[in-house]
Amino acid sequence: MIINNLKLIREKKKISQSELAALLEVSRQTINGIEKNKYNASLQLALKIAYYLNTPLEDIFQWQ
């Protein structure tokens, strides 16, 4: 199981879903879906999320 901390980290950094989506060149709905565990981010997208949030990938998506 993967624990998804994207919403928590994004909100801590005061970045909206729309802002993050624009940086990543995806839709806001994609970010929303990832945060609600409706969609799994591809490895490429997960790495981009970590880069733009300046946060280690394993802090955003944790295996349990």
Score class of each variant (00 low, 15 high):
L8N: 14
I49Q: 00
M1N: 09
K48Q: 09
A50N: 01
N54Q: 14
I3G: 10
Y51F: 13
N5Y: 07
I60Q: 01
I9F: 08
Q17Y: 03
G33Y: 13
R28Y: 09
I34K: 01
K36I: 10
Q17S: 05
R10G: 03
N32M: 14
K38H: 12
W63F: 10
P56T: 05
A41V: 15
T30S: 05
I15P: 01
K48V: 04
M1T: 11
A50V: 05
A46G: 10
L20P: 00
I31S: 01
Q44F: 11
S18V: 11
N54H: 09
R28E: 15
I49R: 00
E35M: 03
K38G: 07
L8F: 10
I2Q: 07
Y52C: 08
I3V: 14
S16P: 05
E25V: 07
E25A: 11
A50Y: 04
L43Y: 14
K36S: 14
L23F: 14
Q29W: 12
I34L: 09
L20Y: 02
I9A: 07
K38L: 13
L24I: 10
K38E: 14
W63M: 07
N37C: 11
L24N: 00
I34Q: 00
S27H: 06
E25K: 15
S16G: 07
E11F: 06
K48I: 04
L24H: 00
D59G: 06
W63N: 06
Q64N: 12
Y51M: 10
I2Y: 12
M1R: 10
N32F: 05
A21W: 03
Q62V: 13
L6K: 01
A21S: 06
Y52F: 14
E19Q: 14
N40C: 14
E35V: 02
K48P: 00
I3K: 14
S42F: 04
T55R: 03
P56C: 07
L47S: 10
Y51Q: 09
D59Y: 08
I60F: 03
K36W: 06
I49A: 04
A50H: 02
L6H: 01
I31Y: 04
K12V: 08
K14L: 10
D59A: 11
N5C: 13
K38Y: 14
Y39R: 13
I60V: 07
S42D: 10
S16Q: 05
I9Q: 04
S27G: 07
S42T: 12
K12A: 15
V26A: 02
Y39N: 07
Y52E: 06
L20V: 02
N54M: 09
I60H: 01
G33D: 15
I2F: 12
N37K: 08
E58M: 10
Q17C: 03
F61S: 00
E11V: 10
I31V: 12
N54T: 08
T30Y: 15
Y39K: 11
L45R: 00
L57K: 02
E58F: 10
K14R: 12
K12P: 01
Q44M: 10
K36F: 06
Q64I: 09
S42P: 14
L6V: 06
A22K: 13
Q17V: 13
I15V: 10
Y51C: 10
A22L: 11
L20M: 05
K7E: 09
P56H: 06
R10D: 03
G33K: 15
L6G: 02
S42N: 09
T30G: 02
K48H: 05
A50D: 01
L20W: 03
S18I: 11
